[in-house]
Design a binder for these strands. Sequence first.
RNA 1: GGAGAGGUGGCAGAGUGGUCGAAUGUGCAUGAUUGGAAAUCAUGUGUAUCCGCAAGGGUACCGAGGGUUCGAAUCCCUCCCUCUCCGCCA
Length: 438
Amino acid sequence: MLDLAFVRNNLSLVEEKLRARGADPAALLGDFHSLDARRREAITQSEQWKARRNDLSQQVGQLKRTGQDATALMEETKALKERLDELDATAAALDEQMRQSLARIPNLTRDEVPAGKSEADNVVVKTWGTAREFEFEAKPHWELGEKLGILDLERAAKLSGARFAVYKGAGARLERALISFMLDLHTTTHGYTEILPPFMVNSKSLFGTGQLPKFAEDLFRCDDGTEFVPGEYRDNDHWLIPTAEVPVTNLYRDEILEDSKLPISFTAYTPCFRAEAGAAGRDTRGIIRQHQFQKVELVKFVRPEESDAEHERLTRHAETILELLELPYRRMLLCSGDTGFSAAKTYDLEVWLPGQALYREISSCSNFEAFQARRANIRYKPGGKGKNEFVHTLNGSGLAVGRTWLAILENYQMADGSVRIPEVLRAYMGGLERIVAP
RNA sequence: GGAGAGGUGGCAGAGUGGUCGAAUGUGCAUGAUUGGAAAUCAUGUGUAUCCGCAAGGGUACCGAGGGUUCGAAUCCCUCCCUCUCCGCCA
């Protein structure tokens, strides 16, 4: 969420940034100045009447205490009430309108974010590793996985429908090995604290990180016998998390963090659940796009002045996983049109997939600045004194485990259809060096 | 799921309709005292928002949301959370 006062004082900048995202400022901001003025006027009016009521009520109390008759004053105050209720309702309605309007405005992208409409306008920042030369035709992971008996998409469909996977034998163990390998590296060398959060969260949490209200249709909601009402954020409903970002960032919702404890770095392994509404027909083969996938996430709470540097560090932490696994990748700086709702700046890491001869996103590392912190009310006291300020939040995949799994299959495949295990994973695989067909 | 007890400021803990944004203790900050410190004393010490150039003033907040009342921390309703006992359960 953007700061109301900031929007008021920088309206043309906000409009310009919205246009850069491909959003329509008129639709999002409406007649901002008018609403803002009417809201403030209504609040002032209502509060002035409340002050009068409070004053009269106190006089009533004083009369009663000294045993005098207060009937006249009570009648007068009662008469005041009707008008007050009206003013109060108007003020509350305008305030709510402003709140909802602000909640739907995306974050402003930073100036170094390139202008662009779509994925095609993202900029390659760097490329790491070289794509392997194959002396045979590289196969896609779904063929490799099915042949090796470690991936069963047919039976997964029987159990749960399309976009689910069953991993088996060495395939299941490879997934588990990747999770352990990633968590171990992040919690030791990279200094993150491991979190194992709930896999279900309430709508307050989803509002905090920005998934609600705009992206409700991308989420799985548990049926509590109630409906989601945009603008109402409950603490007693349940949604499946689309990413660990939600529970981990919301750990500190409505809290004031100690300056001396910052920056705080958390890593968490969780499954992620996504409805993939609007992705019908896309990536239907293989396990690129699933309703459930596993992910190791990195989350940071930092002081505003250090969020840029921490963003670079966090991205490097994700890249390190790819480098240790010796998977070629490139780092993309997302353009304004492709940057997510809550993010001010995002790097995507794309891994090379020889079976499909293309780069695919395997990690997304974002700086949200104060956008999420403002929604979730996460603050700190700079220097331990004075006014509370919002922290900056960051997060990134480190990495998406399912996509790492399939990248290993495609990059490490041999002519006979077997798959070598990357060196760094072998200890996690009980010494296994190669997955071969049964 | 059933029965009961609770949720008040950084913490502890009073307050059951008015003088309560809230006693008291403690913590913290500043000052006095001291060679320095401890102790002591004094003063101050929440958040958000609205008006205002500012000084300052108003409003709201005692788990959350509604309601009753001229007036609610206090009474009523719904919900959330914590604790105890029972039931169920991995």
